Simulated assay, not measured.
Amino acid sequence: RWLKLNALRMDVSIEEVSEQIAALALQGPNAFEILRKIVDLDLSQLRFFRFKPGKILEVPVIISRTGYTGDLGYEIWFRAAHAEAIWDLLVEKGKGFGIKPAGMLALDVARLEAGFILLEVDYIGAEKAMIASQKYSPFEIGLGWTVDLKKDHFVGSKALRELNGRAPSRQIVGLEINLSDYEYLFRQAGLPPQFPIAAWRGGVPVYKDEKQVGHATTGGWSPTLKKYITLATVEQEFNQTGTQLEIEATVNYARKTTGVTVVQLPFYDPVRKRAIFASSNGSKETTSAERLEKI
């Protein structure tokens, strides 16, 4: 729809082919080892956020070094008719590495650990914003790096140039819940602490000295970090790493507050996610750890 709206008065035709294309995401520390067994291209030098064409089972594919998790990963794009065969091959080759299918609930926790924001959850899109406070700029949601103000013209350029140089009034940050405070609230109620296994979504108030200064939008227990973490939008003066705030928590149907600390995003960012893999030589097969080289 966006493409069609912006193609008005242009000599261009647009065809919707989304349902003809399938994508499989292979994510995790062993993604490189599994994928290199089935694809006919050298993955060792494929850098983060780059892509290469190749073949799997003689099927043309595009391999991108991307994913909606905080770990090493690849996404495989190909004609949907071949999805089942390529899925089965990945599962078979990944058995020795403990490969497991993962659904949306697992993906939501993984993207939380990665500090990845989600449209209509962590911020409201321009088309659905009804009042000024619901409108977000890229500078407020951690996407300022995607804006090149040196370009002559692009959609939204005038508005973004007007914002350039001004500190945003709010910022999306990471919050880490103080487990001692959180567990104490449950202990007072005679209950064991309850940690959300699935990531929750919604506007949970964030306070400083009993004054609301923001709201948390996604939160949950991180199985990787063994921490209770959230993404939140807070006022500019409270976005510095180490700032102590409070967040609302419901215990036995009663609203309480517990301490949180502003932490740097992403929560989880291993070196291997953006690393390149040095090719092994012909005489000696090396391990992933030996091949791993930081960019």
Rank of each mutant, 00 (worst) to 15 (best):
E120I: 05
V121F: 09
V121D: 11
V121T: 15
D122A: 09
D122R: 02
D122N: 04
Y123I: 06
Y123Q: 04
Y123L: 13
Y123E: 01
I124Y: 07
G125T: 10
G125I: 10
G125C: 02
A126V: 15
A126I: 15
A126Y: 14
K128L: 14
K128D: 12
K128A: 13
A129D: 09
M130H: 11
M130L: 15
M130Q: 15
I131N: 12
I131H: 14
A132S: 11
A132N: 10
A132M: 05
S133K: 15
S133Y: 12
S133C: 10
S133M: 13
Q134M: 10
Q134A: 08
Q134P: 02
K135R: 11
K135M: 07
K135D: 01
Y136Q: 06
Y136D: 04
Y136K: 03
S137W: 05
S137K: 05
S137Y: 08
S137F: 09
P138Q: 12
F139K: 01
E140R: 09
E140F: 04
E140Q: 13
E140P: 01
E140H: 05
E140I: 07
E140M: 09
E140N: 06
E140A: 06
I141D: 03
I141G: 04
I141M: 08
I141N: 01
I141Y: 07
I141F: 07
G142K: 00
G142Q: 05
G142F: 02
L143M: 10
L143E: 01
G144W: 06
G144I: 07
G144L: 08
W145I: 03
W145F: 12
V147F: 01
V147R: 07
D148L: 00
D148R: 06
D148P: 03
L149A: 04
L149E: 02
L149R: 02
L149C: 01
L149M: 01
K150W: 07
K150I: 02
K151N: 01
K151T: 04
D152Q: 03
D152H: 00
H153I: 10
H153M: 11
H153E: 11
H153V: 11
F154D: 06
V155G: 04
V155N: 07
V155P: 04
V155K: 12
G156C: 03
S157E: 09
S157P: 00
S157V: 14
S157N: 08
S157R: 12
K158R: 14
A159P: 01
A159S: 14
A159G: 05
L160A: 03
L160Q: 06
L160R: 06
R161G: 01
R161E: 09
R161F: 01
E162W: 10
E162K: 15
E162S: 11
E162T: 10
E162V: 08
L163R: 14
L163Q: 14
L163N: 02
G165F: 09
G165K: 07
R166H: 14
R166K: 14
R166D: 12
